[in-house]
């Protein structure tokens, strides 16, 4: 039942981050919301790869090499989330450098002061 709880936790974090992205006015708060939603998505994917009572997919003292297939959790979601976390950092860095540049132009962090794309 462990992965059920973490699945619900991940969905709740995703929804909170999405809500923050939609309602906050401060640009840095919007990026924080993105980062929370990112963490939520990763928790959802890892929860979907969990198998009942299994352990990490690393062959050592705890896992026998002969019947490893019966003893380990799904390695594919772990691999995908591993790369997704690094990409999340890179995307966050690009967003924050855009914010720094925008602040240098307009001296404001409030999204209401950026009307160029409004219609």
């Amino acid at each position: 039942m462990i992965s059920m709880y973490t699945l619900i936790l991940g969905i709740a974090l995703l929804v909170i981050g999405f809500y923050a992205m939609l309602t906050r006015k401060n640009l840095i708060k919007i990026v924080i919301g993105f980062s929370i939603a990112d963490t939520g998505t990763h928790i959802i994917i890892v929860s979907l790869g969990y198998l009942r009572g299994k352990t990490a997919p690393i062959i050592d003292g705890a896992v026998n090499a002969v019947n490893a297939v019966q003893e380990v959790v799904d390695p594919i979601p772990s691999a995908l989330v591993l790369t997704a976390i690094v990409i999340g950092l890179a995307v966050t860095a690009v967003m924050l450098s855009f914010i720094v540049e925008m602040y240098k132009k307009n001296k404001s962090l409030s999204i209401d002061d950026y009307q160029e794309l409004k219609w």
């Binding site: 699945l7 297939v69 380990v72």
Partner: peptide, 21 residues
């Protein structure tokens, strides 16, 4: 639907078992 239809799996799917092996 993801929450309501969610069941903890007991075995690896075929692809993952192939990767582990």
């Amino acid at each position: 639907p993801v929450i309501s239809g969610f069941q903890e799996r007991d075995n690896l799917n075929e692809l993952a078992a192939d990767y582990v092996d």
